[in-house]
Design a protein around this nucleic acid. Structure first.
Length: 554
RNA sequence: GGCAGCGUAGCUCAGUGGUAGAGCAGAGGACUCAUAAGCCUUUGGUCGUGGGUUCAAAUCCCUCCGCUGCCA
């Protein structure tokens, strides 16, 4: 019986390249999850896109003398390239800049307005008399009241890290022209979040399968009470407010970006030729998963569900497996100080699977974890190359040479061989269960344990000795080893899709690993093998220093 | 400042009431098909601090310290 799975992935902000923190937290986990479900034979729709709106992009555009859309489009192309190289298998990765997205956003806006979930109110906001425009938080600079730093922006002080209100800034001035802002009335729309509190709380309390930090955080947040939030801004970059008299305002990004999950599903349906197909992933028997970093929790467990409750009969999230953060060489990641490993840089120098491996085995599922180059190279050399890659290579090269490049004909499997087969079957099930429960780290460790066990099996059976006197016994032993390697290929496929596909082909199979299903796919005796090559390469330890030196510069 | 999560072996991390775990690093050994890989044995921790509950606590409760995130 096939299940249907909707996977929403956090929308990366298109104002800079992706870094490993984002990959470990929000992008690799859903891909592993999606690949597992597809292999299992389930229907998957995995969508996301670039978030093109918001003030960081307009500021960057003004600084670089470009249009916001140029900046956003450049990074969007870079994201697409990164997904392809890293193997992040979106069914659709779109942007918030499409006409479709604006249409869906405005429809939700108007529906919520019509039903009384959105109301108007006038607020007093900073306005620059010189530029003749309202100033969003980030357009105002001043002196931090906490630490005295003079380049503090309106939302948070970069020097001491404290968040603050624009009104608290000492000597505030417009970031563009330096003029002191005045306060001026402006009418805005507010989402009546407070009215959803009780419904949300009742719903959230039933989600006992959520990760503890996600559940506790959300419950406490709701128990403290919700404030209505403004969902429009006095800017000209974003989705227009579909109400007359609001031509100079736009819908605020936090309201609009989450709608992307729905608009992307609709765009995907349109391009598939069946406009109504999106419904099969939004209504009825389908589980929706949202993969995000911990900073995004309230938007996905409170605000987006509230919007969905107010809008229509669409499914609420089934699970929001938010990850914690990745630190780099023991320090908090900082894009402004360039204390980050950028994905395009990584991909220009290394293969995708070693990174996918490290980030899987060291995924920040329950607490922040650390990325270090030493650990990356160590895991690559000692675990991927030595344990798994070498297992595959020692079996394939020995079989290839000893049995004319074909899968050997076996005549019987002894008790030890049968025990190993059962272990493989059991692990395949266990790993599948762990993956469907979003326990990625444990899943990959269990999968790797089969490689260890198979290395032990080979050492016990020593087919390289046995073959001298009893070639048939060696054939029997090696056949079991080939079976188990084929099983490893399937179990590790969600994590290491590129090398699994290679192994699939070395074993003489055609087509894609995914098409063969989440099951032990037995090599047929006589099946021709491809000349084997190592699956992974060792990395020089000197790279540790080389890569570490790149951090913090530029 | 409020809320949530985390703080376990030299390092990276598992482990939510019942005799402290894995991998790597360190020490020793047998083997040699394989990318000098793999396999076996082994050293190593008063589970951040101080209290409490319990026959029993890394695990539950409280204090404090530190880290991360959200909010003011």
């Amino acid at each position: 019986m096939s299940e249907r799975i909707f996977i929403g992935v956090a929308w990366p902000y298109a104002d800079g390249p992706l870094h490993l923190g984002q990959i470990a937290g929000a992008y690799l986990p859903p891909d592993i999850f999606a690949r597992y479900h597809r292999t299992k034979g389930n229907e998957v729709l995995m969508v996301s896109g670039s978030d093109q709106h918001g003030t960081p992009i307009t500021i960057k555009a003004e600084q670089e003398g470009k249009k916001p859309s140029e900046i956003a489009n450049d990074y969007h192309q870079q994201f697409l390239d990164s997904w392809q190289k890293l193997g992040i298998s979106f069914d659709l990765f779109t942007t918030t800049g499409t006409a479709n997205h604006a249409e869906v956003t405005q429809d939700i806006f108007l529906t919520l307005l019509d039903r009384g979930h959105i109301y108007r109110a006038t607020v007093s906001l900073p306005f620059c008399p010189q530029c003749q425009r309202f100033l969003p938080d980030r357009y105002i600079e001043g002196t931090c009241p906490h630490c005295g730093f003079s380049g503090t922006r309106g939302d948070q002080c970069d020097a001491c890290g404290k968040p603050l209100n624009t009104a608290e800034l000492i000597d505030p001035h417009c970031r563009l022209c330096g003029t002191t802002p005045q306060f001026k009335d402006s009418e805005h729309f507010f989402l009546k979040l407070s009215a959803f509190r009780d419904r949300l709380l009742a719903w959230v309390r039933q989600q006992t399968h959520w990760r503890r930090n996600v559940l506790n955080f959300t419950v406490r947040y709701l128990e403290e009470g919700l404030k209505d939030r403004a969902i429009t801004r006095d800017i000209d970059w974003g989705v227009p407010v579909p109400v007359s008299g609001f031509g100079a305002k736009r819908i605020y990004v936090w309201f609009e970006a989450v709608i992307g999950y729905l608009s992307a599903a609709k765009e995907w349906a349109k391009s598939s030729g069946d406009e109504e197909k999106w419904r099969s992933f939004w209504q009825g028997e389908v589980k929706s998963y949202y993969f995000i970093g911990k900073d995004n929790i309230p938007f996905h467990t409170i605000i987006w569900p509230a919007m969905l409750m107010g809008y229509d009969d669409l499914n609420l999230p089934y699970d929001v497996p938010a990850n914690e953060f990745l630190t780099i060489e023991g320090r908090k990641l900082s894009t402004s100080r360039n204390w980050a490993v950028w994905l395009p840089d990584y991909l220009s120098r290394y293969d995708p699977d070693p990174l996918r491996y490290l980030l899987s085995v060291n995924m920040p599922e329950t607490s922040d974890t650390d990325f270090s180059w030493r650990e990356f190279i160590r895991r690559n050399n000692d675990e991927l190359v030595a344990t798994y890659g070498n297992l595959v290579h020692r079996v394939l090269t020995f079989v290839y040479r000893s049995f004319d490049g074909c899968v050997p004909h076996y005549d019987q499997i002894d008790a030890r061989g049968k025990a190993l087969e059962s272990t493989a079957y059991a692990l395949l099930n266990d790993v599948g269960k762990l993956l469907s429960d979003c326990h990625f780290k444990q899943a990959i460790m269990e999968a790797m344990s089969l490689a260890h066990e198979t290395n032990r099996y080979l050492d016990e059976k020593s087919p390289w000795k046995v073959i001298k006197d009893d070639p048939q016994a060696a054939a029997n032993y090696l056949y079991v080893a080939l079976e188990v390697i084929s099983c490893l290929k399937t179990m590790l496929y969600p994590f290491l899709p590129f090398s699994s596909q290679k192994l699939h082909e070395y074993l003489g199979f055609k087509g894609n690993v995914e098409d063969d299903g989440w099951q032990l796919h037995l090599p047929s005796p006589g099946q021709e093998l491809l000349p084997p090559e190592p699956l992974f390469s060792k990395l020089d330890e000197g790279l540790v220093e080389e890569e570490t030196n790149r951090l913090g510069h530029g």
